[in-house]
Amino acid sequence: MHDFPDIDYTQRFIFDESDVRGELVALERSYAEVLAKHPYPEPVAQLLGEMLAAAALLVGTLKFDGLLVLQARSLGPVSLLMVECSSEREIRGIARYDESLITPDATLQELMPDGDLTMTIDPRQGKRYQGIVGLDGVDLSACLSSYFVMSEQLPTRFWIKADGKRARGLLLQQLPAARLTDPEEREASWQHVNTLVDTLTAEELLSLNNETVLHRLFHEDAVRMFDIQPLVFRCSCSRERSANALVSLGLEDAQQLVIEHNGTVEIDCQFCNQRYLFDATDVAQLFAGGGVDTPSDTRH
């Protein structure tokens, strides 16, 4: 038995004697819920788990109110990986792939050759920010680490693993100089903690609780842990959003769509498979400004 809290969570930690902070993430239930929506092949399920863990770690580094979106695209066997995590730590994700091209132990480079990773920060107020990096690292951790180098943000490194059941990750981030102002000391301290985390095996990261991981790595350093922050799977789809998609078509096209689909348009959420149904009466009501509060019969 592993000594884990019965929730998915992120947990922050800081080094009291240097300008470095860290974050740990553990996903099990939310990861299982994402995987339950589609029958993903194992390499795709692992990669999607790594993306979920990455998004959860990144949300912890950002002070914003809104949505973080990680989107990886390629012309390879996996054409799309997309994960969204809100500042309230509600997460969802999806992958698009060609199963006939996927081998059992496929690497990131085999699954997504010449791919790109886009990070979008979409705050509820203020300007949207987007950055992009090539998926040319050995794994997702390496790609994300190089993203922070290229975007000239605070030096940040990732260690992420997923096995189809658990997704775990550790992030280290160098903070602006405060405790260590000498550049050489500062760099030595950053290299010291990175070298220690590089000794962590995938098995240890996936199977040990946070206290054990941190003690094993940093028992000679002063590390302070903060309270865990719960994280859940939740899809942000709704009947209202689906209705807005219909409204955006315009009245004539929406009516035509109903006719073409034998009287009922089905809009499926690609993330959670929820299905929303609209008939001619619903469409008329939408365009008359009646909203979506009274769906016909048993529809949802």
Score class of each variant (00 low, 15 high):
289 G>W: 03
132 I>W: 09
60 G>Q: 06
3 D>E: 06
105 D>V: 03
289 G>Y: 11
80 L>V: 01
123 P>Q: 04
11 Q>P: 02
182 D>N: 07
44 V>D: 11
201 T>Q: 09
190 W>Y: 04
123 P>G: 03
230 P>Y: 06
7 I>C: 15
143 C>H: 10
179 R>P: 00
149 V>I: 15
200 L>E: 00
222 A>E: 13
57 L>M: 03
123 P>W: 02
78 V>Q: 11
186 R>M: 05
242 S>C: 15
218 F>P: 03
153 Q>H: 09
252 E>G: 00
26 A>C: 14
170 L>G: 09
221 D>F: 07
281 T>P: 00
273 N>L: 08
62 L>D: 06
94 I>F: 15
53 A>I: 03
9 Y>G: 04
184 E>Y: 05
118 T>I: 07
298 T>A: 10
180 L>S: 08
287 F>L: 06
40 Y>S: 05
99 E>C: 02
49 G>Q: 09
126 G>H: 03
107 T>E: 10
212 T>K: 12
113 P>A: 07
55 A>Q: 07
3 D>Q: 11
234 R>Q: 13
258 V>K: 13
225 M>H: 04
33 E>A: 12
201 T>E: 08
92 R>K: 08
119 M>F: 00
253 D>M: 11
78 V>F: 01
72 A>M: 05
127 K>L: 12
88 E>K: 08
231 L>Q: 10
282 D>A: 04
189 S>P: 00
25 V>R: 11
46 Q>M: 15
87 S>I: 00
248 S>W: 07
180 L>M: 01
269 C>P: 04
129 Y>N: 09
292 V>L: 08
195 T>Q: 14
206 L>C: 06
30 S>W: 13
190 W>F: 05
214 L>T: 09
156 T>S: 05
163 D>Q: 04
221 D>I: 10
67 L>V: 03
170 L>P: 03
85 C>E: 03
27 L>C: 15
267 I>E: 00
187 E>K: 12
59 V>A: 06
231 L>W: 08
1 M>T: 12
217 L>E: 04
112 M>F: 07
28 E>H: 14
140 L>Y: 11
188 A>Y: 07
185 E>S: 05
131 G>M: 14
47 L>Q: 11
115 G>K: 11
137 G>W: 02
78 V>N: 11
22 G>M: 13
44 V>T: 13
